[in-house]
Each structure stands twice: as C-alpha cells, then as structure tokens.
Simulated scan of single mutants.
Amino acid sequence: MRKTLFILITILLSITMYGCSSSGDTDDTGDTGNEDKPTLTFGVTNWTSTVPPTKIAGKILEDMGYDIEETNADAGSVYTGMSNGDIDIFMDSWFPAQRQYIEEYSDSIESISVSYEDANSGMVVPKYMEDINDVEDLKGKEDIVNHEMFAIGEGDPAMQDMKKVIDFYDLDIEMTNSSEAAMLAAAEAEMEEENPVLFYGWRPHSMFDKYDLKILTNKEATAQEGLFDSSTINVIANKGLEEKAPEAYEFLSNWRISMEDMEQMIAEIDGGKDPDDVTQAWIDNNQDKIDEIKNAN
C-alpha cells in the first residue's frame, strides 16, 4: 500500500513539475504570435495640417502594439530622414508640390495612400479685396500689397513653385519668408485694419474658419505649367516599413480622412485645445471609420 501511494505521489509531482516548466517556457519566450513590435517614428513638420493625422495614426498604432515616436523637422529634413531610415512615416505629403522629394528619394521612400483630395493652396487674399480673384489680377497693382507676399519657410518646396508663379506673371512682388505662425501674425495684423494683404495659404487650415479668405485662381500658370493645381495629401513611408511593421503598413495603406474633419480639428487645436484631446475625441467618435480602414483588405 505504501509503495503504491509513493508511486502515485511521484507521478503527481512529475505532472506538476512538467506543468510549471511549460508555463515557465511560455513566460520566457512569449506568444510567438505576439512578438514585440518595433518603434515607429513619424516625421512632423510645423504645419498645422500635420498634427491631427499624425496623432490619430500614432494613437491607433499604439493600440495595435507599436511604440510611437515623433521627430519634428522641416519638410526637407523629414524626407531626408525617411530616405535614410531615421523616420518611417510622414502623414502630410502634398502632391504635386512635394513630388520632387519622391522623385529624388524614389529608391527608399514611397507614397502608400491618399489621405484626402482637393486640397488647394496658393496666393490668398481677404474677400474684401473684391477685384483680385486670379493671380493675373495683381499685375500692375502690386503696390496695393506693398509689393510683398507673406510666406512660409523658404525651404518648403511649395515656395519654390510660388517663385515660379511670380516669375510666370512677371509680378513685382517679393516674398517675406518666415514660420507659419509669423506669416499668419503679419497677415492678421493687416486684416484687422482691413488693409489689402497677400500671403500664402492652404486648405485644410483654420485661417479659412477664422477669416473670410479666398485662394486666388491661377488659370494660366496652372494650365501651362501645372503650378498650384489641386493637391492630394499622401501618406509617405520608408520602403522598409512593409517588412519592418507589416500590420502598420497595411493599416496606413488604407488610411483616409476627410478634409472637413481635418479643418474642424485644426480649428479646435488653434483655439487652444490640447491636440491629444482633440484627436482622441475624433477616434472615439469615428470608431466605425477606423474599423473600416483596419478591415479594408
């Protein structure tokens, strides 16, 4: 009887030890289907249109298990960072204005989706300048804006195209380049006095929510040179992203957001709300859209 009991105890101990060993192996190696995911780095410019899609995509990818970092830089540095692998994703690439970067770094970066379409940009004036509706209307009247156009950083590719527009119409206008905030502050100071003013603008942007503005048409230069035609906003990625983070690549390949949602979020952020709160509210209110993007394939 004692011998039988000893055998039974030995068998039970062996089973218990095997179970502990198996459990320990799982703890050490983890679930092979849920291996640690890499850190993904987003490039972030100082444009207001970059913040909402970057925050939203970053939060969703964090929920999918990725660690997210942001690198703040001007557009040129963002593309350079993507080309050498320091930056994985840029959510705010304007086509055709920034097509030169895709062409320059075509071996290492690619456009993987269109975020939204029909985003216009160009010379902007307040609507009370009723006689100025096309860029050509400025010819011979440059003095009304003191021969000056307020603009964003000179290194932005859109500013290279803007110089071409000015040359195309042979306008006697000089660009004053600065940050987006400084440009808007200068333009707003003139509009507060209802003075004529010329500056660079784009949609989506809260400036169109705050002021009655119009983007000047650009018929001749658009038709002949393709300058400042309607833009699409693309998601750009380093070509190594698909192998590095296939789930993230698939999600971003299906990414879409409306320009109306963008402008509303930009206006809220510019109004003082925390970008994390604004973008989290969008996520909470648009889970159906997020699920649609995730399940697109």
Rank of each mutant, 00 (worst) to 15 (best):
122 G>Q: 06
92 D>L: 10
109 I>T: 06
106 S>T: 13
110 E>R: 09
114 V>Q: 05
111 S>M: 14
91 M>R: 05
105 Y>G: 09
118 D>C: 14
105 Y>K: 02
101 Y>L: 05
110 E>I: 13
113 S>E: 12
113 S>I: 06
118 D>V: 13
110 E>H: 08
106 S>R: 10
120 N>M: 07
91 M>P: 00
108 S>P: 04
121 S>I: 13
98 Q>M: 10
103 E>V: 15
108 S>T: 15
100 Q>L: 01
102 I>H: 14
116 Y>Q: 07
95 F>N: 03
98 Q>L: 03
115 S>D: 11
105 Y>C: 10
101 Y>Q: 01
91 M>W: 02
122 G>L: 09
92 D>M: 10
111 S>C: 12
92 D>G: 00
98 Q>K: 00
93 S>E: 06
109 I>M: 07
104 E>C: 06
122 G>R: 01
99 R>Y: 08
101 Y>D: 01
108 S>Y: 07
93 S>Q: 05
117 E>Y: 12
118 D>G: 15
114 V>Y: 05
118 D>N: 15
120 N>A: 12
116 Y>I: 08
93 S>F: 07
96 P>V: 04
100 Q>H: 09
90 F>L: 03
114 V>L: 05
98 Q>N: 11
119 A>F: 11
122 G>M: 09
107 D>G: 06
94 W>N: 02
105 Y>H: 11
106 S>D: 10
115 S>P: 11
106 S>V: 11
110 E>D: 11
115 S>M: 13
112 I>L: 08
